[in-house]
Design a protein around this nucleic acid. Structure first.
Length: 501
RNA sequence: GGGCCGCUAGCUCAAUUGGCAGAGCAACUGACUCUUAAUCAGUAGGUUACAGGUUCGAUUCCUGUGCGGCUCACCA
């Protein structure tokens, strides 16, 4: 008995409102199942509305009868008659219950048993109210699932950001625009697939658990396989596996999936994020630029119906062609520093200090160039722009520009000051790749924890011969931020990472 | 990790100089048979994030902790 009581108290504090828990108990007492195994449904809210419209066009016989089910969102009770709105996946529909239609007992029992938030099944015939709203005149109704927790304020909704992220289901329930946003997210991913499939790319899946991580400059998460007693890394990119597939003879492959990077969280970083990478044989980075602007414009057109977007108050047109800016020139224009003149760390570091910058103390030349890009160039790249030709030090997997010793055929795409993608002509000379890995090894020794690891099997793959190949990677979350005008990556992730409570 | 700000009923928010912790929605009881933020009358609902301190008395002032937001740093 005492155990039952304390268990009840625990349930109450954890998942339920005391009054509703009591209602559930009363229903069970009356042998009415608050969670029936199934309810009959013939129409969604949208189908019901459409059925009424069709009948109104050609009104023969009785008005259409429908059985719908959905969450009770609002209720307006006027004694013997009640209006309410049910919400299902297609939208909302009004139902109308009357005492003299349902009968005194049924009507009162329904009113007593149901609360806002409950899932209700209702059957009746369609009609239009005096104000013109398609409505179901209900002849029978019942509980489909009891809700034990009150919904947020029907007018103000749920606005507390932490509550919205931690309990996303409530956010989705009461905030229509959030539900809409994640439909747009799905449409974005679908449009990317549609574009690449249409261009002859093969969608593949490669390992998330990797013995050697690589393909990006980032710290990994580490996990462990118990039986094999083997440490494994959660992938930080798909790159090295996808290029093995190009070696294997596929001309064009892509993967859409999750990457994991063990870094700080911010308005544009989540520990896990969704990435698209594609690789195309016999393409170079110029081809990839054309494909990028074409693909992003295609996706925007599919999802928004236009390539003109507004991001945080800035109007931008994603239609090709995008601007192309030489990285070295862009840095020189924005800072007066020609990186070519400072090939050693100390002189470049001092030049940046003179400029008033605060880069971290013991970086590599590459890190300093990165710093210059982020601090001085990136904020200026409002119109869609490809920043092209990067220093080899920070691009260990990219092909050198013919006739140049320090620069590679690489570009990053920027829109509204935000970096959205990174691509290059792939380095396919296994000997040079070996040297680049060794240089990365020296960076690692020098304290760069994110320097690329030596991957012997990848080198072996390259040594079988990889055709000239263009590769591309884009953070899908950031693209969705752009398309849906959200300032934070957490707004476009259904379940963003949160600290444990 | 640094700085700033926030945390009060299920939700959205008040609370004067440190003086009985309140409203609207949701819930409950009642009135009301075309309402749509329905309306009207009433009831119940609180460890004021948590732990300390100052004080006759703390939602309010102080210290610490937790969580969150913004920002800087980090971050391909």
């Amino acid at each position: 008995m005492e155990d039952g009581l304390s268990a009840n108290r625990e349930t109450e504090s954890l998942i339920a409102d005391a009054q509703r828990l009591e209602k559930r108990r009363r229903l069970l007492e009356q042998e009415q199942d608050p969670y029936p195994a199934r309810v009959a449904r013939t129409h969604t809210s949208l189908q019901a509305r459409t059925a009424l419209e069709a009948w109104e066009q050609n009104p023969e016989g009785e008005a259409p009868r429908v059985a719908v089910a959905g969450r009770l969102m609002t209720e307006r009770v006027m004694g013997g008659s009640t209006f309410a709105h049910l919400m299902d996946g297609a939208g909302r529909i009004q139902i109308y219950l009357r005492r003299n239609v349902l009968g005194e007992e049924t009507y009162n029992a329904l009113r007593r048993a149901t609360d806002i938030g409950d899932i209700i099944a209702a059957e009746g015939s369609m009609f239009r109210t005096r104000t013109g709203e398609a409505t179901i005149s209900v002849t029978s109704a019942g509980l489909a699932a009891k809700s034990l927790h009150p919904l947020p304020d029907k007018w103000h909704g749920l606005t507390d950001v932490e509550a919205r992220y931690r309990h996303r289901y409530v956010d989705l329930l009461v905030n229509d625009e959030v539900r809409q946003l994640f439909r747009q997210r799905a449409a974005t991913v679908s449009a990317i697939r549609q574009y690449l499939d249409g261009e002859g790319f093969l969608e593949v899946e490669t390992p998330i658990l990797q013995p050697i991580y690589g393909g990006a400059h980032a710290k990994p998460f580490v996990t462990h396989h118990n039986q094999l007693d083997q440490d494994l890394y959660l992938r930080i990119s798909f790159e090295l596996y996808l290029k093995r597939l190009i070696v294997g003879g596929y001309d064009a492959v892509y993967e859409i999936g999750r990457d994991f990077r063990n870094e700080g969280v911010s308005y544009k970083h989540n520990p896990e994020f969704t990435q698209i990478e594609f690789y195309e044989a016999y393409a170079d980075y110029h081809d990839v630029m054309r494909r990028t602007e074409e693909m992003v414009a295609f996706v925007a057109e599919k999802v928004l119906g236009t390539t003109r977007i507004s991001y945080q108050g800035t109007e931008v047109d994603l239609a090709p062609p995008w601007h192309r800016r030489d990285l070295r020139q862009a840095i020189a224009e924005e800072t007066g520093i020609d990186v070519e003149g400072y090939r050693d760390v100390d002189s470049l570091y001092r030049a940046i200090l003179d400029l008033g910058g605060h880069p971290e103390p013991k970086p590599t030349v590459g890190k300093l160039v990165d710093y210059l890009i982020e601090a001085y160039v990136e904020p200026k790249l409002v119109e869609p722009t490809f920043l092209m030709d990067y220093p080899v030090e920070i691009s260990p997997l990219a092909k050198r520009i013919p006739g140049s010793d320090g620069w590679v055929e690489r570009f990053e795409g920027f829109v509204a000051g935000m970096e959205i993608c990174n691509a290059f002509s792939e380095l396919n000379d296994p000997v040079e790749q070996f040297d680049r890995f060794r240089a990365q090894g020296r960076d690692f020794e020098a304290g760069d924890e994110e320097a690329h690891q030596m991957d012997a099997d990848y080198l072996l793959a390259l040594s079988y011969g990889m055709p000239p190949t263009g590769g591309f990677g884009m953070g899908i979350d950031r693209l969705i931020m752009l398309l849906t005008d959200r300032a934070s990556i957490r707004e476009v992730l259904l379940f963003p990472h949160m600290r444990s409570l």
